[in-house]
């Protein structure tokens, strides 16, 4: 169970990093909107996309907030199970050294409570896995938007260079989040 705790801690650390990057995306989306406004008619398509990117960045933030809450509950629940494992081990050792039936009953009660905690953890595990899948889908959409923005940037005439830079950075960051989420989905914690 301490391995499980280590795994969930690793996921937590990765999500904290992703949340930090997601915050950067919010600022970048704002910059893209300002840039599109400055470019005016030369960047109408980019302007539409920059608004979509802004909406995406806000959705991503909300999604990351949900993930952070869920991961916090997971860390808490794995810690509870770690407590259970230790207490159960001590009780089992005591049961092995005595013939008192009351201790056997205490162990049964303990194991019943352990089962409830395990079930709660299993449910949280499934919720986290689903939330990661949802976040991944959202980021896939962000990737499509960023790539479209890169194409639109090419039509930006005098602003093409600046627009290409902004959309390129956006695309890079979305890709970074995508890779992180993909790695998280493969975590041993879900196996």
């Amino acid at each position: 169970m301490s391995t499980d705790l280590l795994r969930i801690v690793r996921i937590n650390e990765e999500i904290k990093a992703v949340v930090g990057v997601a915050f950067k995306i919010n600022i970048m989306a704002l910059n893209a909107i300002f840039l599109a406004k400055r470019a005016g008619t030369a960047a109408l398509g980019f302007g539409v996309l920059s608004n979509e990117l802004r909406v995406f960045s806000q959705d991503l933030r909300t999604c990351m907030g949900g993930l952070s809450g869920l991961i916090h509950r997971c860390v808490n629940e794995v810690s509870v199970v770690l407590q259970d494992v230790r207490n159960t081990k001590l009780l089992r050792e005591a049961v092995a050294g005595t013939s008192r039936p009351e201790l056997g009953l205490a162990l049964k009660r303990r194991e019943l409570a352990n089962g409830e905690h395990q079930a709660r953890l299993a449910s949280l595990r499934r919720q986290l896995q689903r939330a990661l899948e949802d976040a991944f889908q959202l980021v896939e959409l962000g990737g499509v938007l960023a790539k479209s923005a890169k194409i639109e940037a090419a039509y930006g005439q005098g602003f093409a260079g600046a627009l290409a830079q902004v959309s390129g950075e956006f695309d890079g960051i979305v890709e970074e989040i995508r890779n992180s989420l993909q790695a998280l989905q493969r975590s041993e914690f879900f196996k």
């Binding site: 705790l5 280590l6 801690v9 937590n12 509950r73 860390v75 808490n76 810690s79 509870v80 407590q83």
Partner: peptide
């Protein structure tokens, strides 16, 4: 205490990598 370990651990993990 042992009873508050889950609460302390999960709060700490939000701030710092416990490993």
């Amino acid at each position: 205490g042992a009873e508050v370990f889950p609460a302390v651990f999960s709060a700490l993990a939000g701030e710092f990598d416990p490993s």
